[in-house]
């Protein structure tokens, strides 16, 4: 069980958190302006890197907040976490 440092609450065990997919995929401001292909890209295409991965977690059994996290998918090491809406 990983220890995940919530940027708001500090280090907590993994079972207080819920995974929420890849980070930094902003919902387009005007979805209607997108082509079908571009919209499908936004909906479905996600990275699957071997190594550093920016992803979202939610401290669902804690402060309830979503935040971002850089995790190495090979070693499971968490490099850092930072609040939602901020750059890595």
């Amino acid at each position: 069980m990983l220890v995940i440092p919530c940027p708001h609450c500090g280090p907590r065990p993994e079972n207080e958190f819920r995974y929420a997919g890849e980070a930094h995929i902003a919902r387009p401001a005007d979805p209607e302006a997108l082509s079908d292909a571009a919209w499908a890209d936004f909906l479905y295409m996600r990275g699957n890197p071997k190594g550093r991965h920016a992803e979202r977690w939610r401290h669902v059994h804690g402060c309830g907040r979503f935040f971002n996290c850089i995790r190495d998918t090979v070693t499971d090491r968490i490099e850092r976490t930072y609040p939602a809406g901020t750059a890595p």
Binding site: R18, A20, A26, R27, R56, R58, V60, G64, R65, F66, A84, G85
Partner: peptide, 13 residues
């Protein structure tokens, strides 16, 4: 609730 919180916190903050 999770879905609503997601949009409220990250898309419509």
């Amino acid at each position: 609730l999770h879905h609503m919180e997601d949009y409220l916190q990250t898309e419509f903050p």
